[in-house]
Design a protein around this nucleic acid. Structure first.
Lengths: 340, 340
DNA sequence: TTGTATGCGTTATCAT
DNA sequence: ATGATAACGCATACAA
């Protein structure tokens, strides 16, 4: 089954030199003479020599691998972030071990375990909806393996995190609806005791409070933020005795589903009901009218997370000093809230 | 910097037994007595023992890791496929090493190298646009490391591949336009000498031929199939002296961009110009009118690819016997081609 | 059922 | 500039 690979032993033997020299030559160590180096390189090339990363990892006690844990791979935003991570990691010679929790806390636990066993050098994590406890990351903390939370963060514990100011972004989104004269504003989000969705909810509440509008929990729809749930929420909205005139949805996908559904029922967007999303997913520019949304840089978030982690691993910077990195976000106003 | 981990040596010493027994106990080897097993397990647990996968890999000469190479992570379809792969791989105890080529052939080459060096047990690959040569995978073939191409496949060489019948799917899409009375049909795709896009072009040509319509290369738009290119193509379409009445686009994202752009210029979809996409991306149900498209199962394609590879690795099946697996695809007719 | 001894392929230390 | 050799942590053939 397994064919034996060519190793530095083989090269050493054929060249009548020591494995030490071969090893050094292969890594272009300045100690080795140019002549020897050349001989080694050539032979290695000819025999299709490949380093055995495991032997190397075993010896060096590090893996050059970064673990990435996300709720789902198939969301535009997450895929964009990972894309940024991949770019940086690859350029720096790091591999990526990627897993998705599918929003299951149990799976999150088991994946964290697996990552630990695989001895990733560091971890980049976006938490699942209902993960409100960071105990499963303690083993990493104990072994001083760096962990960065991004986007779906949690400020508890001594980990570093990267996100936008979700309270403020949601506040802006809601205030924008209020400024356009809307007063009965639905919020579609996911139920969560402690997460960015909680924060978005807080921003929503703040804006309402500022306008002296009491919080009405019958206007808060809790679902999974899928496109389908957006449609369901639309039905709910239209079933209310007193029709809402604004909707703030915690992601674009769900917002798009909701918007389209409302339109199908003859609702005029934005005059009857205005809609604001979150993420600036491409769908926001496809749906008609285009979706007003919160834009923030996913790709750059990925790059930053990876860069921060790698700098720390290489000893170029100590990320433990930074508790949180806040990225800028913008409200992008489009046709779903403003006519014309 | 590095704290020393607890190893089987430590456990063996403390328990006054051999490392062999500890090693066996930890893997629940039936040879070990229940009593010893229990003692070992408990101590391991208490000390937070974790196996060193590298040592194990080094010893066993396999990695339990599958390499996944895709053009881009941030496409809905690819993310869906990977999601399926991840599900199966994780359940089977395999790790995923994921990289994206960003449609660059050079990066594809270097990533394939890296995967090789990392000694993945197998490879799942979706080729980049312009990768029309499989030589960089020869090292895998030589070492009998299984490689499966999915979606963006290439039938040359002795590799296994999984895809839909792209010729037929494109034929159906184009024929559908012809059946609704369209005669001047634009095809938006990517330039490629040998790939699924070539096949889709072939299907397009076949349908035209069947209706006795000569192929007009001025109606074939070659771009990167991005949403933005869809908009650009729309401008081109409207600039033509003799206006086309149908568009068949090789992916939904680009089709959506094109459709929206056409509408903005006052074109009536589908009466003036009908549009067909490819992939059944969620955007196809958001855009208005909803996009007629080719649907095929990305998630299942991912599952199947992973399952096939893993079965082969485990010796449960020999995938080398299967050259190609063809998945079913369907034309989904929506408002962008049929009114009402 | 348990133990002994060795190899897996590198890299690092200490000589030379 | 090069070499000898000892880890790195685990799994297995063979012995007991």
């Amino acid at each position: 089954m397994k064919k034996k690979d060519i190793t530095i032993y083989d090269i050493a033997e054929q060249l009548n030199i020591s494995t030490a020299t071969v090893s050094r030559a292969l890594r272009d160590d300045p100690l080795v003479s140019a002549k020897t180096k050349k001989k080694v390189m050539e032979l290695a090339e000819r025999h299709g020599y490949q380093v055995n990363q495991f032997a190397r990892n075993l010896r060096k006690r590090q893996t050059n691998t970064i673990g990435v844990i996300v709720p789902r791979l198939n969301s535009f935003f997450m895929a964009t972030v990972i894309s940024g991570v991949e770019q940086v990691a690859n350029a720096a010679g790091y591999n990526l071990l990627i897993s998705q929790t599918s929003e299951s806390v149990e799976r999150e636990h088991s994946i964290v375990q697996t990552m630990f066993h695989n001895r990733v050098d560091g971890l980049l994590v976006s938490l699942s909806y209902h993960s409100n406890n960071l105990d499963h990351f303690n083993r990493f903390a104990q072994k001083e393996i760096p962990v960065i939370f991004f986007d779906r963060t949690n400020m508890e514990g001594n980990f570093t995190s990267i996100s936008i100011n979700n309270v403020h972004a949601a506040y802006e989104a809601t205030r924008h609806l209020l400024q356009t004269g809307k007063r009965r504003i639905v919020h579609i989000t996911v139920s969560s005791t402690e997460s960015i969705y909680k924060e978005r909810f807080r921003g929503y509440s703040q804006a309402l409070a500022e306008y002296g509008i009491p919080l009405d929990m019958s206007l808060v729809c809790l679902g999974d933020l899928s496109l389908e749930y957006g449609e369901e929420a639309a039905r709910y909205i239209l079933s209310l005795p007193q029709r809402p005139d604004g909707v703030f949805v915690a992601n674009d996908n769900c917002a798009a589903g909701c918007l389209v559904s409302l339109k199908k029922q003859g609702i005029d967007i934005p005059n009857d009901i205005a809609v604001v999303g979150f993420n600036d997913d491409p769908v926001s520019r496809i749906v008609e009218p285009n979706l007003t949304t919160i834009r923030y840089p996913g790709y750059q978030m990925g790059e930053l997370a990876a860069r921060t982690l790698i700098n720390h691993l290489n000893g170029d910077a100590n990320m433990l000093l930074t508790q949180h990195i806040l990225l800028r976000s913008d409200l992008v106003i489009r046709g779903s809230t403003v006519d014309g």
